[in-house]
């Protein structure tokens, strides 16, 4: 039978008593020890090209030279082949929603987002993989799998070398795409 979780394990049954001089001092229950470490992140080769493209409202992906798969945002490596990807491969800022959720809780890292909002796997035309983005300028409840979307960019004078230049993805009004194999995300490569 399981041991009572409130029991004291035999080995732990050693009484620890404070010296008489501090016997009536209140026990410390909790200490706060804030940690602050600053990191200087570096995006790497492929992501650098992607971020530079962002500043010009261009989506710069990379391709696996062996499988032909196109990765966005590019990480510089093809996971199917274990080799570096090559770029640039420019993709249009249109695609479709592969799947989505409607988030109804606030998130600490995006205090600007008012729930409910829709975050979705977006697959760009020509890309082999999806990535997460917000679907905006529509009711979250109206979002569908297969819905066509296009990027909503920041105003030109606010563009930076940042993925946040794309505020989100809005319905493009084109007919929905049919998702043939609903289990798999993205598209297999040419040579798979």
């Amino acid at each position: 039978m399981p041991v009572d979780p409130d029991s004291t394990p035999v080995g732990l049954g050693v009484e620890v008593t404070a010296p008489a001089s501090i016997a009536d001092v209140e026990m410390v229950q909790r200490v706060r020890t804030p940690i602050r470490i600053e990191y200087t992140y570096t995006p790497g080769r492929a992501l650098s090209a992607y971020l530079r493209g962002m500043a010009e409202k261009r989506i710069v992906a990379e391709r696996c030279p062996r499988t032909g798969q196109v990765f966005v945002p590019p990480r510089g490596v093809s996971p199917m082949a274990g080799i570096p990807t090559v770029g640039p491969v420019e993709l249009p800022d249109v695609g479709y929603v592969e799947s989505f959720n409607i988030t109804r809780v606030p998130i600490a890292t995006r205090p600007d987002l008012e729930p409910p909002y829709c975050s979705a796997w977006i697959v760009l035309d020509g890309a082999s993989v999806g990535f997460m983005g917000l679907v905006i300028n529509c009711e979250p409840e109206s979002v569908r799998m297969g819905m066509r979307v296009k990027a909503v960019w920041k105003p030109d004078d606010e563009l930076e070398k940042s993925a946040t230049n794309i505020l989100g993805w809005e319905p493009s009004g084109e007919p929905d795409v049919e998702i043939s194999d609903i289990e798999t995300i993205g598209r297999p490569g040419d040579l798979q």
Partner: peptide, 15 residues
Amino acid sequence: IPDESEVEFMVPLMV
């Protein structure tokens, strides 16, 4: 190695 991410500089070594 400021210009490459961890995976970018590791891939050639792995290969």
